[in-house]
Amino acid sequence: MRITYPAHGHQEWAVAPAGETVGDEGRLLRYRVAVERDIDGVGAGAFAEMVSETLGDARGWTAGGKFRFRRVGPGQRADFTVYLATPDTRDKLCAEGTDGYTSCRNGGNVVLNVARWVKGVPRYGAGSLATYRQYMVNHEVGHKLGNGHQLCPGPGRAAPVMQQQTLGLHGCRPNPWPYPDGHRLYAGRSGTYDDPLPHRDTGTR
């Protein structure tokens, strides 16, 4: 089904029901999943299942044995919330100026911009939209887990999941996973590139 959305949403949310715990050991983090009601074509339940599958993947953040994740439902206590938000609501939740393009993590807000969820990014190499969506989840949750931005470790290498792959790969290959072979990927140096920010999204309707 085609996903449509306006640039400006009303910050009203559909919250997904509770789900299973993923991961076998480590600190338990409870998370909520919410989809802005202005977004059509993806329900909170379907979006939450994709988030849960990504967090529970053997290549994801549970692989290090430090974290487990449990999806909670409406009204239940959560350590963070994963939002699928319109571009303008993204700016409000991120509280870092008018961006409208990227996603972010701000305190307990893990904010995924629906414009990137639908359109992906240009120049993402051989990475598919599904791969990019997994990257979005793992990158922003990675910030919640205390990880900062990292640089490409070298041409042709897999990009660290904490590299800002949305803005540029800088010779690396797309990679959405922190533990792509069950082991932590070489992380590269800490830092960011001076990549220009593309124009903000104006919505699809």
Rank of each mutant, 00 (worst) to 15 (best):
A46M: 12
T202I: 14
T62K: 02
V137H: 04
D91S: 12
A14G: 09
A95Y: 09
L28A: 05
R2F: 14
Y179K: 01
K119G: 11
D91P: 10
T98F: 12
G97L: 01
T81K: 01
N138M: 10
C152F: 05
R200W: 10
L55F: 05
G56D: 04
Q134E: 11
G64M: 06
T62P: 10
W61R: 01
V42S: 07
H170W: 03
R184P: 08
L167D: 01
M1K: 14
V42K: 02
T102S: 10
D195N: 05
V42M: 06
V72A: 03
H199P: 05
V42N: 00
E53C: 02
N175I: 01
V22D: 08
N113R: 08
G120H: 08
R173G: 10
P87K: 02
S128F: 07
E20A: 14
N109M: 03
D57C: 03
H8A: 15
Y132T: 07
P198C: 11
N113Q: 04
K119H: 15
P178A: 03
D57E: 05
T4P: 12
D99P: 07
G97W: 07
Y124L: 13
L84F: 07
L185N: 10
V72D: 08
G26Y: 04
V141S: 05
G56I: 01
E12L: 13
N113Y: 06
V111Q: 07
C94A: 08
L112K: 00
I39N: 02
P155G: 04
T192L: 12
G23I: 02
G73T: 09
A48R: 07
D79Q: 10
T54V: 15
A14M: 09
V110T: 09
A18E: 09
T62M: 11
T202Q: 15
G73D: 02
E49Y: 00
S128G: 10
N109R: 08
E12G: 09
N106A: 10
R68C: 09
L28Y: 07
P153S: 14
G148M: 07
Q163H: 11
E36Q: 12
C152Y: 00
A48L: 02
V114Y: 01
T4R: 15
G75P: 04
R37S: 13
G64Y: 03
A46G: 14
L84M: 07
V22L: 00
G191Q: 10
L151M: 14
R184K: 13
P17V: 03
D40Y: 05
M136S: 00
Y193C: 11
R32E: 06
Y124R: 13
H8F: 13
C104W: 08
Y31F: 14
T89E: 12
C104N: 03
G26S: 04
D194M: 11
A187M: 10
T102Y: 00
V110Q: 08
R123E: 15
L55H: 07
T131C: 11
M136F: 04
T21K: 14
C94E: 06
R205P: 12
A159G: 05
P178I: 01
V72L: 05
E36M: 09
L29P: 03
L167T: 00
D195V: 00
R2L: 14
C104F: 06
G182Y: 01
R68V: 07
P122S: 11
A58G: 12
T102L: 12
N109T: 03
G26Q: 00
A115R: 09
V118P: 03
L185Y: 05
E49G: 15
N147L: 15
A63H: 03
R30S: 13
T98Q: 15
L29Q: 13
T166R: 00
